[in-house]
Amino acid sequence: MNIFRLAGDMTHLASVLVLLLKIHTIKSCAGVSLKTQELYALVFATRYLDIFTDFISLYNTVMKLIFLGSSFSIVWYIRRHKIVRRSYDKDQDTFRHYFLVLPCLLLALVIHEKFTFREVMWAFSLYLEAVAILPQLVLLQRTRNIDNLTGQYVFLLGAYRALYILNWIYRYFTEPHFVHWITWIAGLVQTLLYADFFYYYFESWKNNVKLQLPA
C-alpha cells in the first residue's frame, strides 16, 4: 500500500459517501444519474467476485463491502425510496447504458489476462468503470444545473482515478513484476473522460461562478 493508493481509496470512499449522505439527508436525488449508479453497482459486483474466496487484507475486504453496500443502497434509494424516487428525472437520464455494457462485455471476452469467468468479469468491470460516468456527465450537461454535491461527486471520482494512476506509476518502479496493462489503459481512459469536466470545474471554481458545462 502506498500513499497514492490510500489517498485514491479514501477519495473514492468519500465520493460514494458524499452521494449517499446527500440522498439520505435531503431525501432527493436531483441531478444524480441512476444509470451511472447502476453501472457502478455492476462494476463492483463483477469486480469483487473474489470477496469471499480470496482474503487479501481486512482493509481490502472492508472497503469492498462498503463499496458494494453504498452503491447498491444508492440504487435502492433512487429506485425504491418513496420520497427520493420522486426527485429522479427519468426523462432526462436517458443515456442507453446497455450501449456501454455490451461493448465492455465483448471487449472483455477479447482482451483479458486469462480466459476464465473471474478474469473476464474483472476485465469487464474495469472497462465498464472507465465509461460508467458518461450518463452522469450527459445528465449534468443536459440539466446544466450542477448543484455542488453532484459536482463534488464527479470531481472526487475523477481525483480517485488520477491518484490511482500515480499509484500504478509508483508500483511499476518499486515492484519488479507489477505490470497490468488492462488496468492501466482502462484507468487512463477513465481519467481522460473526466479531464474536460475538471477543466470546467476549476474554471468555475477560479472565477467563482456557477459551474456551467457547454451544451
Binding site: 500500500m1 481509496d9 473514492h12 473474489d50 487479501i56 481490502n60 472497503m63 469492498k64 463499496f67 515492484e175
Partner: peptide, 10 residues
C-alpha cells in the same frame, strides 16, 4: 514488501 498478489487493488 507485501506479496503483490494478483488482484490486491480495489
Amino acid at each position: 514488501i507485501e506479496p503483490t498478489s494478483e488482484k490486491d487493488e480495489l
